[in-house]
Design a protein around this nucleic acid. Sequence first.
DNA 1: TTGTAGGCGTTATCAG
DNA 2: CTGATAACGCCTACAA
Lengths: 341, 341
Amino acid sequence: MSGVNIKQLAEALKLAPSTVSRALNDSYEISEKTKKRVLAMAEKMSYRPNPFARSLREHRSKTIAMIIPALVNNFFSQVIEGVEEIVQEYGYHLLVYNTHESCQKEREIVSHLLNGRVDGIMMSLSHQTSYYEHIQKIYDQGIPLIFFDRVCRHIPTTKFITNDYESGFKATEHLIEQGCKRIAFLLLSNEISIGKQRLRGYKDSLGFHGLEVEEKLILKCGSTDSENADAIRQLLNAPDRPQGILSSVEKLAISTYYISRDLCLGIPEDIKLASFSNLKIADLLNPGLTTIAQPALEIGQEAAKLLMTKLTKKNTPDFADQTITIPSVLEVRGSSGGISS
Amino acid sequence: MSGVNIKQLAEALKLAPSTVSRALNDSYEISEKTKKRVLAMAEKMSYRPNPFARSLREHRSKTIAMIIPALVNNFFSQVIEGVEEIVQEYGYHLLVYNTHESCQKEREIVSHLLNGRVDGIMMSLSHQTSYYEHIQKIYDQGIPLIFFDRVCRHIPTTKFITNDYESGFKATEHLIEQGCKRIAFLLLSNEISIGKQRLRGYKDSLGFHGLEVEEKLILKCGSTDSENADAIRQLLNAPDRPQGILSSVEKLAISTYYISRDLCLGIPEDIKLASFSNLKIADLLNPGLTTIAQPALEIGQEAAKLLMTKLTKKNTPDFADQTITIPSVLEVRGSSGGISS
DNA sequence: TTGTAGGCGTTATCAG
DNA sequence: CTGATAACGCCTACAA
């Protein structure tokens, strides 16, 4: 449409396209004088190199993709913020895809990215994902791949998570210290690695403090919000209601607030609550929500830095099959009875 | 690296590349038999067309960009969600850029998109943006451009907003009805179109109800969070503290919660508060926050639908110079004294 | 119905 | 230091 191409630019300068190209790319074999002339004219004619021609030639797109299970989510939006920031510094572009927690969508999205469109992928699995052929394909094609939060253990690459086990342990311990003997655990899905770790921490903590693990207190949520709400309602309505709840994701904790309000149950008097959550205004809730806050921004930044280094520095080794842990922080607030709020 | 190209595919089939290309694109001039054969082989060899070669040929990228001032933000993340959903339906890709409210960054980002990388742009201006040459360039290049929320009046294209004036008017009226005689208005920046409209609604509402507009009650925030907090603190600490506050953005309302807690001022007893906000859990705050909630998801969806239609249907007219208004909803909660919470 | 050839805009290789 | 040429992978006239 509007654009000037390198040929026209060369024509205007009475130079060959190749010379112009070299001048624009600051090649050492071009005289300073010519470079200046070319740059000036490029500016004047507002020349913009065509990214697709370049990508075609160079087999790289300067673009990466993020595949995440949800966008309207305090954790993921903070991760995106961190990633975008780093990516922008490096002059790369960021494609964002939302799987809506659907494995099917995840597969479709991945299949659109196996053609060289992106130079790298950062992803967090849908909680419905339980087989990994599509992920394996990314890896097999040699596309640099990094996981964060909801990682896939079967792929030998670098993963960024928080200390889920330890946090689950500590949060449970905290509830026990507040006097809870029976504590429920709200799990989004048992497929997800992090859910498992958090659950393991919870179980071990109970055991460590001589408390029994009751399977019926482990609520496997996941399908629809209303089904989850029903399950929580049933839990809170039961005659043998637990004294505490540890939620592995924010949205289930939020549901718990609504439901306990409905049922006229007081937090923390009747039920003490703690949750993994990145809600910034946790302390403005009534009562303030005791959270295990993940360092979402930092996870995004660190993961993106690693990817950008791999893509921009020569001879970078492939990602090690390792898990990098950035610790979460337990912030005690009113909901667990720790402090008044 | 890994990919099979159309030439190799043709070779394997003992056909010419052009024939294969046509078969893959379901051209009418290819026999059913050949088509099937080609499709089968393409599947078998897991052929993926190179998107850059295609973009280079066809002068379109099947990619659009969203440029927004913030990512960790309930409004914008909901808009992204809506946009992503529609874009994915159409098989398009979504690039996301964060200006961090900086006009300088906004300019840089735009300059990277003037080379055909994207087929269309949806944007919401940074609040620091007060001149529009870079935006004008997008328009002049003929790149389809849609604004939402923080629109640019000077560009004759379609803009999606909510009824900011009316909402400002109604929210102010609501505070007046709750007994407020003097109401402050928290403005993020006087450059932004929507801020202006909301402010105008506030002023007119005061006038309509026979109340005076006091310039010193109009707080122009914007630079840093801590400066904003100081300004609000000063407002609340003053001997002639207003009885009500209308905040034009969520984050200033959140600050107000913290500051009034610090100052031991009760909401709504000492200060009544209402805010433009897309916080989903506004009713879990203490007290619940009276909000003017924007239909963020819908704005994203509608804007994206319009853009997708323009890009995929032949002979679509250019975007009309119009403003499409999707109404916000005033939700009265405890913070304005409307109902207990 | 299928094959041939050229070009989209760049950059790298090879000459000069 | 600069110029000509080929190639990246695809699509589409045009030819057969």
